[in-house]
């Protein structure tokens, strides 16, 4: 059986797709066969972040409608042969996804894959609902900023009440906090909510802090998940997150300001 992870946030632009791409790649790099699915029908972007936009032939909706098989639609990643991408449909409207259809696909994928990463669209509409409905684990991507924290809390309420696990009275979805676009310097100046503040408000288990980093834009420019940029702070942050998720004991990094020579040589700024 596969473990289904939803990457969600409520708010748009906080780094869901960046995170989905990075952790899916990270899990695959660790030797686990992983599929990453774009649930953002009509506004797909995971293909672009993964750098496989020109290899999309069939998509998620084609498979649901029986117009293509799962194997035809899955794109094998060019960097890692244990990673597969299932792109969203760009042309259909968001009602093209059905709970039954999504359930069937996830069940079929579960037979063959160890991890299935569901990249949720922003908002709390159908696509976001279906992305989280079947999840076992939720990675809640949050920026240290008021609207993002509020929306994350709203999303937590939905995870706790509207998911399959909630409806069937099973053990609830495991929720993890991924705090992204973090600037320790600004936290020190009192300009930004600290990781402790956000944790105190959301009372979530912290899986990792991803610092604000130039490497994220560089990675998306070139269509390579940022985790492959092993020298970058964001890449290392995601590698830590994957390791922690898999049970490795990694102390948290990127919470304090960069200092001294190390920062000067390896810092992103």
């Amino acid at each position: 059986m596969a473990r289904i992870i939803v990457v969600t946030s409520g708010k748009g632009g906080v780094g869901k797709t960046t995170t989905s791409a990075a952790i899916a790649m990270g899990l695959a790099k660790k030797g686990h066969k992983t599929a990453v699915i774009d649930f953002d029908v009509g506004l797909r972007n995971l293909d672009l972040i993964m750098g496989c936009e020109r290899r999309v032939v069939y998509d998620f909706v084609n498979v649901i409608n029986g117009e293509a098989s799962l194997n035809q639609a899955l794109i094998r990643d060019k960097n890692c042969n244990l990673l597969y991408i299932l792109p969203a449909s760009q042309t259909r409207d968001k009602d093209a996804l059905s709970q039954e259809g999504v359930g069937k696909i996830l069940e079929e994928l579960s037979k063959d894959f160890k991890y299935i990463v569901c990249d949720s669209p922003a908002g709390i509409e159908k696509g976001a609902h279906l992305a989280m409905y079947f999840a076992d684990d939720a990675f809640v991507v949050t920026n240290p900023e008021v609207s993002s924290v509020r929306d994350s809390d709203r999303m937590l309420g939905i995870l706790a009440s509207k998911s399959r696990r909630a409806e069937q009275n099973e053990e609830p979805i495991k929720e993890y906090l991924l705090l992204s676009r973090y600037s320790p310097d600004r936290v020190k100046l009192g300009e930004m909510l600290s990781v402790d503040d956000v944790q105190e408000i959301l009372s979530l288990h912290l899986l990792g802090v991803i610092p604000e980093s130039k490497s994220v834009l560089n990675a998306s420019n070139s269509g390579t998940p940022v985790i492959l940029d092993e020298k970058s702070d964001a890449g290392q942050a995601y590698a830590d997150i994957v390791a922690r998720y898999l049970g490795e004991d990694k102390p948290h990094r990127f919470i304090d300001e960069k200092k001294g020579l190390f920062g000067k040589f390896f810092g992103s700024k």
Binding site: V146, R150, V187, L189, G190, E191, L193, S194, D197, I201
Partner: peptide, 12 residues
């Protein structure tokens, strides 16, 4: 400026 992060926390 030190006020704004704590204000954010309080409001949230």
């Amino acid at each position: 400026k030190a006020g704004t992060a704590s204000l954010a926390k309080e409001r949230l």
